[in-house]
Write a protein that binds this DNA or RNA. Sequence first.
DNA 1: ACCCAGGGTTGCA
DNA 2: TGCAACCATGGG
Length: 290
Amino acid sequence: MKCFEKEGNVILENVEAFDIEEILECGQCFHFTKLSEKEYELINYGRYLHVSQIDKNVILYKTDMETYERVWKNYFDVERDYNDIKHKLIDIDDRLTTAIEAKPGIRILNQDFFETLISFIISQNKQIPHIKKIVHTLSDRYGSEVDVDGRIIKLFPTPEQLKDVSEDELRECKVGFRAPYIRDAVVKVVSGVIDENELRSIGAGECMKRLMSIKGVGEKVASCVMLFALGYRSTFPVDVWMKRIMEYMYYDSPAKKEDIVALASEKYGEYAGYAQQYLFYYGRENGIGK
DNA sequence: ACCCAGGGTTGCA
DNA sequence: TGCAACCATGGG
């Protein structure tokens, strides 16, 4: 891959295992809009990005190398060798081939911690389109403005911006019974009880425990935050889809989530998080396990 | 009218 | 420890 700045854009030339549509639509993030085929705008890290892809070339519009190096390179997990990961997974179990080859351009994003935490608290018992809608509503109401060619775009609110938002106001954003959960998350982040840097350094087990001390954060939501925002790539979130898919692949009868997580850890090891994402996207698109 | 969604908490055995 | 009712909301 070659990377350079040209006419105010940053170009990633000849990318490997990188498909902007698969990356954004695979269910790991919610704050983006499709503009046209392989062309999107997205919000993350308090920033707006307009991005498109033609074949193996990706264009990050109106940004510079400094910003790319500091923000988007890490966000898109550019440095990681996904072809190697895919080979490792297929070596572990060649039945992963179908899912991997269906969406070979998936990458796991390194997303903003707070936005990921709130987004996945919202995600419980909701479908993806509705999660997206609520994330956009929260941003419209409480986030900062960014001027994009005269058009006003709203960022996801910071912990400070949500600090004084009441449960009732949150309910007006249609978060329903999750309102007190969001409140608790905001309070714990603002007070420093939940600290991103600590979570990154204390290890997976302890990180999981700390996240689950937030009301409304159980093992699944915590797993998603760990995998999609905190760099714990061996984490294996099990939702209704992953339960069905794993039962379809490895069991002949309903299995406990706990056992599925243990099996994934045993089989996929440090690659469990990647396996999860290939399987989730494939299983959901194809209705595996009905 | 009924069921389900990238679940979690509470209550009760 | 295990299980099920319940939680808001929208879409099929």
